[in-house]
Nucleic acid binder design. Structure first.
Lengths: 354, 354
DNA sequence: TTGAAAGCGATACCAG
DNA sequence: CTGGTATCGCTTTCAA
C-alpha cells in the first residue's frame, strides 16, 4: 500500500498538518523539522501530496479542458488546429497549467458528454463544435469558465469569446471575387450538411449550417455576392465531411466536371482549397486564370502554393483564449476579443474568363 | 453555492447513496425513483457527481499525462511530434481517456517537477526528455504506470517501452553513406551538447549526449563509420538548440563555409536536414551531388523535398504507447514494443565527389 | 430497494 | 511553530 500523509506523520511523530505544511507552506515550520519530514517521506517512498485529494480540497485542479471538434485525434491533422493548440499551450505553460484534451468521439455523443462531465479541470476551451452538440450543454451545466471561438444563442455570460469576425472576413474575399467579375461561383465547406458525404449541400440558406464557423463564413460570401447582384440560389454549395485535401479535390470534381463550370470556387479552409488546386491541375486547368480559388486560414502551405486566402492568426487565437481563461477579466466587456483578419491576394485569383 | 449530491438527496428526500446510484449504477434503483432524482438534479442545476471527488474515491482519473521534451508548446512545431500525438490521441479517444499535456517549462526544472507531482492522471507517457531531467525521477516516485520511448538505466520494471532501434536505424543510414564512398562526414543533431547554441558539439563520444534519442542515433552512425574505417575523432558534430529548419541551416553553415567541407552531412531529424538543404542551395551546391544529406523521421515534407532519410512510424508509435499504457499487459515481456524503421533513399544522397 | 456509516487523502482554521 | 478538528464531495460495503 502506498504511503499517505498520515504514514509520514506517524513515522516522524508529528501531525498530518505539519507534514502537509512541509510541502505546501514551508514557511510554517522550522527548516530542521521540514527536513526531517522530507527525509522520512523519501525513506518511505512518499512522493508528495496526492494531486486528486489536493484538488478536491483546494477546489482547483491546475488544468484546463479542451474541446476540439468531433474527434480528438483529428485535430492533429489540421495545421490550423495545431497552430491554435500551440498558442493555447504557450498560455498554459506560462500559467503552469495542464491542458486536458477531452476524448470526444465522433460517433458517440453520450461519450462526449461523459468526457465533459468527468473532466478534472478548472475551465474549458472550445475550438469548433456544432451548435447542437450536447457536450456544449453539459459544459454550461458544469458552470466552469468557458472560452469559445464561436457564439451560440444559448451561451451564458460566463462564456468568453476569442475569435474573428468570420462573416466580415469572407465578405472581403467575396467582394474580391465579385470585383474580378466572377458571377458563376461555388462554395466548398466542411460540415455544411449533416450527412458525412462529399457532394452538393443543397443549402437554402447559410442559417441551416450547424457549425458557427462555416455558417458565418457562408453568410459573408452570401452578402458579398448579393451586393454584386448574384443571388444565393445560383451559388452551388458542396459539402465535405472532413477538413482534408483529398476531400477538397473530390468536392471540386463535382463542380469542374459539369458545364458550365464555376469561374470561381471559394473554400472555407485552406486545406480544402489546396485540394481544389489539385483537382484543377489534374484537369489541366490553371488556377487564377481558368478558375479562381480562395481559401481561408492562411496556413503555411497556402503561402507555399500561392493561394489567395484570408489570413487569421492561429497561435494568437489559442494564446488569447488561454489567457482569457486563466486570468479572467473582471469586466465582462473584456471577455470578448475579436482578432483581425486580412485578405491575402496571391496567384490563385484573377479576372473571370469571358 | 453549487449543489452537491447531498443537496439533491435532501430535495428528493433520499440518501446520498441513492443519488449516487442514480448516476453511477442505474440498475440499483427503480426507474421511477431514478427519474425523480434526475429531475430534481436538473431543477437544482446539479450537473452530476464532481469529477475530482469521484476520482479521489474511485482511485482513477480517466486521464493520462504526457511529457514532451522541454517546452509544451514546442511540441506543436515539430511535425513528427504532432504525428506521435495524433496516434496517442487515437488510443486515448478509443479508451475514452483524456490526454493531459503537462506544462513543462524549459527554464524551470522545478516547475516541471511540480507539474508531474500535481498531474491528476492514471499514468504517464514520455516522449523525449533528457536523461538527467528531475521530472523523470518525480515520475518514478509517483509509482504510476509509465510508457516511454527512451530507456534509462534507472528505469524500473513498471516502465514500458515503445520505440525503435535508434542505433540500428542510423547504422543503416551510415552504411549507406559509407557505401557511397563518403569519408569526410559530419553530424548535426539537437541537444548534442548542453549549451543552447548552434555550433560544434565537440563530442568525444556519443555517450556524452544527454538525450537517449540523439545519443543512440549517434552511436549508430559511429558504428557505421567505424566499420568503414572512419574514426569518430574525424567526424564533426554540430549542435542545434532546437529542432527547427533555420537552426539546421545555420548549423550547416559551420560545416560548409570551411575547407575542406564534408562530403556528407547526417542530421538527426528531418527538420534539421531540410535546413541543411536550404543552406546548400543558398551556396549553389546541389544536394546529392556536391554534398549528400540524410535526415531522420520521414515527415511529409521529407518526401516532398526528396530527402534521403530514415522512416519511423510516428502515429503508430503514439498509438502503441497509448494502448500499452491503457491496458497494460500482464506479461512484462509484452511491455516492450520495438517498431520497424527503414532507410528511404531519395535524391539527396549520391556518390562522394572525388 | 434503500440508507447509515466509514472512508478516499488532503488542507484550513484556530487554539495552544 | 504545531496539532486537533472539520470538511472537500463522493463511493462503497453492509445491514435493514
Amino acid at each position: 500500500m502506498r504511503p499517505t500523509l498520515q504514514t509520514v506523520a506517524d513515522a516522524v511523530g508529528v501531525s498530518r498538518s505539519t507534514v502537509s505544511n512541509a510541502y505546501s507552506r514551508p514557511d510554517q515550520l522550522s527548516t530542521e523539522l521540514r527536513d526531517r519530514v522530507l527525509a522520512a517521506a523519501a525513506a518511505l517512498g512518499y512522493a508528495g501530496p496526492d494531486p486528486t485529494a489536493r484538488s478536491l480540497r483546494k477546489r482547483r485542479t491546475g488544468a484546463i479542458g479542451m474541446l476540439f471538434t468531433a474527434s480528438l485525434s483529428f485535430a492533429f491533422t489540421d495545421p490550423y488546429a495545431v497552430g491554435y493548440l500551440r498558442g493555447l499551450a504557450e498560455a498554459a505553460e506560462q500559467a503552469r497549467t495542464g491542458l486536458l484534451l477531452l476524448p470526444l468521439s465522433v460517433e458517440d455523443d453520450a461519450a462526449a458528454v461523459a468526457a465533459v462531465n468527468e473532466a478534472v479541470v478548472d475551465g474549458f476551451c472550445v475550438y469548433c463544435m456544432p451548435d447542437w452538440h450536447p457536450a456544449l450543454d453539459a459544459l454550461a451545466a458544469r458552470g466552469l469558465p468557458v472560452v469559445s471561438g464561436q457564439r451560440r444563442a444559448s451561451d451564458g455570460p460566463q462564456s468568453a469569446f476569442v475569435g474573428i469576425d468570420e462573416a466580415a472576413a469572407t465578405r472581403a474575399a467575396g467582394d474580391h471575387l465579385m470585383a474580378l467579375g466572377h458571377r458563376r461561383v461555388a462554395v466548398i465547406g466542411d460540415y455544411l450538411s449533416v450527412a458525412p458525404t462529399i457532394g452538393p449541400a443543397l443549402l437554402t440558406s447559410p442559417a441551416d449550417v450547424a457549425y458557427y464557423t462555416s455558417r458565418e463564413r457562408l453568410r459573408g460570401y452570401q452578402s458579398a455576392f448579393a451586393a454584386a447582384g448574384v443571388d444565393w440560389s445560383t451559388v452551388t454549395t458542396v459539402n465535405v465531411p472532413g477538413n482534408c485535401r483529398d476531400d477538397g479535390a473530390t468536392a471540386a470534381a463535382h463542380l469542374l466536371d459539369r458545364a458550365p463550370r464555376p469561374t470561381a470556387i471559394a473554400a472555407l479552409s485552406d486545406i480544402v482549397a489546396l485540394g481544389v488546386l489539385d483537382a484543377l491541375r489534374a484537369r489541366g486547368l490553371q488556377p487564377g486564370r481558368d478558375v479562381s480559388v480562395v481559401g481561408f486560414d492562411d496556413i503555411p502551405e497556402a503561402a507555399a502554393e500561392n493561394l489567395t486566402t484570408v489570413h487569421q492568426p492561429a497561435a494568437d487565437r489559442g494564446r488569447r483564449s488561454g489567457e482569457l481563461l486563466l486570468d479572467r477579466p473582471a469586466d465582462p466587456a473584456d471577455r470578448t476579443v475579436v482578432l483581425p483578419t486580412r485578405l491575402v491576394v496571391r496567384a490563385t485569383t484573377g479576372p473571370a474568363p469571358s
